[in-house]
C-alpha cells in the first residue's frame, strides 16, 4: 500500500536554533497520527512544514495526489500546492479566528472552499453548507449568523465544517481542543472521532493534551527539542513509555 503522506528527513532551523530536525514517518490512508510534546518542542513547526505554510530547509514531504500519484509537495509549484491545500488538505487552527473569516456568515465560511473550486450555484452551495452545519451540530437556522456571535466551541466546529466540506483526504490539526472547556472538548473530540471514522480521513494532530491523542490517534510521536524521541502505537507509548521524556510526560498528567 502507498502511504498517503511520506515524510523523509524533514528539518527546519531558525538561524542557529532548531525548529525540528530529521523527522521521518509514513502515514497510511485512514490513519490518525498524534504528535505530542511540550511547548517549543517543534510540533507546530513540523506541522506547518508539512502543510506548506513554512518552507523546510531539507527533506521531502511526499503526498499521494489523486491525479498524479506521489508528489513531493516541498518542490511542487506554488499553484499546485495551494490547489492541494484547498481540495485534498484541510488545516484546523488552534484559534478558530485564524481559520475563519469573522466578517462572513457561517454559510459563507463553509461555502468558501466550494466556491474556490468552482461551485457557482447558490442553492447547492447553501444546501451543502446547511448540511455541514448540522453534521457538526450547529443549528441550521444559524447559517446566516456571523462567527462572532458563536461560542468558542461552535466556532471550532464551524472551522471543522469549513475544512471538511470539500471532502479532503488529509487533515492537519493544530491543538484543535486548545482553549475550550473540558465538556466542550469532550463533545468536539466525539464529533471529530465520528467524522474521521465516517469519512475515512487521515489526520495529523498536534497537541499537548494526552487525552486527545488517546482518543483519536492510532499512532503517536513524542517530540522534544525538535527531535522525535519516541514513536509507536498510541496505547503502547502511553502505557509503556520508554524514553525518559515520554515517561515524564505521561506521569505529569493529573489523575482525577
Amino acid at each position: 500500500m502507498t502511504p498517503l503522506l511520506s515524510v523523509q528527513g524533514l528539518s527546519k532551523r531558525y538561524g542557529a536554533h532548531i525548529g525540528c530536525a530529521d523527522v521521518s514517518f509514513d502515514l497510511y490512508p485512514g490513519e490518525v497520527m498524534g504528535i505530542v510534546g511540550e511547548s517549543g518542542s517543534g510540533k507546530s513547526t513540523l506541522l506547518n512544514c508539512m502543510a506548506g505554510h513554512l518552507a523546510p530547509d531539507t527533506g521531502q514531504v511526499v503526498f499521494d495526489t489523486r491525479a498524479d500519484g506521489p508528489q513531493d509537495t516541498v518542490t511542487m509549484s506554488e499553484p499546485a500546492r495551494r490547489m492541494l491545500s484547498r481540495t485534498d488538505w484541510a488545516f484546523v487552527h488552534q484559534h478558530a479566528r485564524d481559520g475563519l473569516r469573522m466578517g462572513v456568515s457561517a454559510g459563507g465560511n463553509v461555502g468558501e472552499r466550494l466556491m474556490a473550486v468552482g461551485a457557482r450555484h447558490y442553492g447547492d452551495i447553501r444546501g451543502k453548507a446547511t448540511d455541514w452545519l448540522e453534521r457538526v451540530e450547529i443549528d441550521a437556522a444559524r447559517v446566516d449568523d456571523r462567527p462572532t456571535t458563536f461560542s468558542g466551541g461552535m466556532q471550532q466546529r464551524l472551522q471543522i465544517a469549513r475544512n471538511l466540506v470539500t471532502g479532503p483526504r488529509l487533515v492537519f490539526m493544530d491543538e484543535p481542543t486548545g482553549g475550550l472547556d473540558v465538556s466542550v472538548q469532550a463533545r468536539l473530540l466525539d464529533l471529530l472521532r465520528g467524522l474521521v471514522r465516517d469519512m475515512g480521513l487521515s489526520a495529523i494532530i498536534v497537541t499537548h493534551d494526552l487525552a486527545v491523542v488517546r482518543l483519536l490517534a492510532d499512532r503517536l510521536m513524542v517530540m522534544k527539542s525538535g527531535h522525535v524521541v519516541e514513536a509507536g502505537l498510541t496505547d503502547q507509548v502511553l502505557d509503556d513509555p520508554q524514553h525518559p521524556y515520554s515517561q515524564l510526560l505521561v506521569s505529569s498528567v493529573l489523575q482525577v
Partner: peptide, 17 residues
C-alpha cells in the same frame, strides 16, 4: 494564481442577507 473563489463569497453574502 487566479484564485477568485473569495469574490463569490461576497456575492453569496449578499444573497444570504
Amino acid at each position: 494564481l487566479e484564485e477568485y473563489g473569495l469574490m463569490h463569497v461576497k456575492l453569496y453574502e449578499d444573497i444570504s442577507r
